[in-house]
Amino acid sequence: MRLKAEELSNKIPSLYVKADRIANTIWEGIHNRNKDGLGDNFWQFRKYEYGDPAHLIDWKKTAKSNETFIQEKELQTLQNFVIWRDTSKSMNFRSSESIDTKLYRANLFTLALTIILSKSGENIVLNGLKSKLLKGGNAVNFVSNQINEKVTDSYKSSPNVNEIKNNSDVILIGDFLNNIIETEKTIKELSNRGINGIIIQILDPAERFFPYKGRINFNGLEGEQNILIGKAESVRNDYKKAIKIHIEKLEKLITSYSWKYILDNSEQDASISLQNICNTLTYFNNTEFRT
């Protein structure tokens, strides 16, 4: 038990550090909104004008000079982001030791996005934990603490739609290898409530290119019937065709609801995909983010 706990606690900081590093590289490219408004971050001092609420007066600054100053905070638009990641067993797959498991990658994206979004003052919620909307540092803390918790079973392979509030944007991370109809159901329901979203499909290279050879007994990770393939290389083309059709269908489905689709190869550098996601987010939020 203890060993496992230690392993986990070691994992969280490393995941956090990695996520933080990636998030910062992305964040550097994103400028501020340069507008005063409601927010956590200081924006500017301004001379007190009649009508300004008294509690905005910055007494320190005021005491330094003859004028009365008001501290203005940077504008923060209130946007709710719901992040969901697939935690089903099949996410634990990786085709080789050098590649991260899909779940690790999903967690990485979740955390990195939380960091980035919290920096821009968004409200963030991790779907499946019935938590409140969180902002800023709180959100990062919460997510990084909860990320290795097992999200309860019912929300495994599809997000808990009921938990998502209407004025939210949804980021769904997973492998989406399950039946496309289930995915469509989710998207349709959310879309009908006017919710916009991004779907990030994480796939292991082996799942896309099927590099196996020889006689192989394939077992599913979620209790599927095993399949004995006499000569794996002979079915490679057929498989590749099938998976390609699936991916294309999925993309078509997503774009048809004018959601965004991003395909992530778990072999690639995670920051590439994350950059991609942020770009999409910027576009998505109507030029709030600019690179």
């Binding site: 799942e207 077992n219 399949i227 057929d238």
Partner: peptide
């Protein structure tokens, strides 16, 4: 004689179900 198969866990297994699987690996 074909060698004993390797066992591999594979998430995308359902895409293999409908694939024609006649050929056998010769003992290598």
């Amino acid at each position: 004689y074909p060698p004993a198969p390797k066992t591999i866990f594979f998430p995308a297994i359902k895409f293999l179900t409908n694939i024609n699987n006649d050929e056998e690996t010769a003992g290598n």
